[in-house]
């Protein structure tokens, strides 16, 4: 990997020597990563490889033992408005008394600042984001009445409304139906077409080559990172997943169909 200066504007995300540990056990170990702007990147790796941890550590959600992350050359505190985040769907209580539109507007709270209430402009922005994920007619629906795929799209709309330059999504495809998955992929690819950077924690190796143009294989350390065609190789998969043969076969099948 060429050594790129973290302050270069073409690097959307620059991670340097990032180490995260729980008790003494390392979860991420001296991770270096550069993600160029405008790619749609999957983060893959076996269970416990630190995929979610990577996103959370980069976004300052959990303490780091060492290292730093820069967004377009700036630390997170200054780059917050450039970053959108889609947490795992299961991380919240969907029985919370609020409406779809309200959840989407939460994406704008950070920009609103203290003491200001969301108004007409925020409402319109949220409705626009809901149209993009094809949920506009459910705007006033209570969130507990949504299906899993709809919940995921609401979270996506909440990130869209942030109008960020770089998006982090934690397993947006987990347990959604095929229609929703296609819809979400469409949105992600539209984002990339607008020049945005999208980083997705992903599980399904078979769809990697179809959906993503950039991939990072993670197993506590970075195993490989780069354009999908060059990086998503059986050799790298074996290094990331070790002897888990079934995964390997899926991976190779995916590569075969992708080529």
């Amino acid at each position: 990997m060429p050594s790129q200066n973290g302050s270069s504007p073409t690097v959307a995300l620059h991670v340097e020597d990032l180490t995260v540990a729980y008790q003494r056990k390392p979860v991420l170990w001296d991770v270096d990563l550069d993600v160029p702007a405008g790619v749609l990147m999957a983060v893959i790796g076996p269970n416990g490889a630190g995929k979610t941890t990577l996103i959370k550590a980069v976004l300052n959600l959990i303490p780091r033992a060492a290292g730093r992350a820069l967004f377009f050359g700036q630390p997170y505190e200054q780059a917050r408005s450039l970053v959108g985040y889609v947490p795992q769907r299961g991380s919240v209580d969907w029985d919370f008394p609020t409406s779809v539109l309200d959840v989407v507007m939460m994406g704008l709270y950070g920009r609103l600042g203290w003491f200001r209430r969301p108004g007409r402009r925020e409402r319109e922005a949220a409705l626009h984001a809901l149209e993009q994920v094809a949920l506009a007619d459910l705007a006033h629906r209570q969130i507990s009445q949504l299906s899993g795929g709809q919940q995921q799209r609401v979270f996506l709309a909440r990130a869209l409304v942030q109008d960020a330059q770089i998006y982090f999504m934690d397993e947006p495809f987990a347990a959604v139906d095929a229609v929703t998955e296609r819809a979400i992929v469409g949105i992600l690819q539209a984002l990339r077409a607008q020049g945005k950077t999208v980083i997705v924690v992903h599980h399904d190796l078979q769809t990697i080559t179809d959906y993503f143009d950039w991939v990072t294989l993670l197993n506590v350390e970075v195993v490989a990172s780069g354009p999908t065609a060059a990086t998503f190789t059986p050799e790298n998969l074996r290094r990331a997943y070790g002897g888990r043969v079934s995964f390997m076969e899926h991976g190779q099948a995916a590569i075969a169909t992708g080529d």
Binding site: S3, D17, T19, A21, R24, W29, D30, D32, A65, A66
Partner: peptide, 25 residues
């Protein structure tokens, strides 16, 4: 544990970057 861990972080950093182009930096 933190001491031990700190040691390992530095050792790992040296291990990974030694001999590479960016080592001097």
């Amino acid at each position: 544990m933190r001491q031990q861990f700190d040691d390992q972080v530095i050792l790992a950093h040296l291990y990974r970057h030694e001999g590479a182009a960016e080592a001097a930096d």
